[in-house]
Amino acid sequence: MVTGAMPPTSAQPPSEGTCDAMTTTAVPSKIRVEKVSFAYSNAEALRAVSLDVYPHEVTVLFGPARSGKTTLLRLLNRLTDLLEGTRRSGHIYLDGQDIFAPDVDVAELRRRVGMVFAMPIPLPMSIRANLTYGLQLKGIRDRALLEARVESALRAAALWDEVKDRLEDPASSLSGGQQQRLCLARILALEPEVILLDNPTSGLDPISTSKVEASLHELRQRYTIIAVPHSVQQAARIADRAAFMLGGEIIEVGTAREIFTRPRDPRTRDYVEGRFG
């Protein structure tokens, strides 16, 4: 465990659920979640969750519905701030910096930690404007640079060929699969460091799904990816590292191979083998 860039707390021994492979990894974690508990106004969602996310890997959070996956994801770029009456404890560090510290610029954090939602939500504007929106908010005005970002982001999301001739059309005119890739492209245009994917293929047909999955493999070379997959099968296909969540807790974390072939916890084994959930 490299402690150089870490806050003092990260030097503590890893929690019980963490497996051996991680303690031997020499790479510092990109995101460190430390004993985070979170409750909505009416229900508890997370209980003392700890997790290390490493750069250039696809980390998958999987588990049955209402196990806290989406909540954890939304905490990572502070989208949970919007809700009233929530309670939170614990810390989340991005590159060693506490994201809940009072001096953190939330908009800047959300540019560094981009999120793609389960349902594609094109903003009510043109395809091009959907891509330049975040960039312009960031203060980029240079037309040539905007154009270059639009093209490279659309290419990375495997959408360029389908929309290059109709960038001025309203984004709502795209098909569901195209919209989801547009939402991914929109995030990529901001050149984030971390990409959060909340069930990004939920509404997609198998072909679009495999396109998105294939682009994830490409993308992890440049980004750190945290995904909530559609199914255990998808989790196994895309994950480098996986965390099994149940009832607001992380039951087990490990490399994909460990979790999907020889899980230690009987609950993980049951879920992976399809015995419940």
Binding site: N77, L79, R111, L123, P124
Partner: peptide
Amino acid sequence: VPRSYRDASLALGANHWQTVCHAVVPAAR
């Protein structure tokens, strides 16, 4: 306007006011 519109705009680094002007009001146009 569904909350997801707000989330989408905020996740792109917009602040509350930018989200209202560029995402919520146009969606409610």
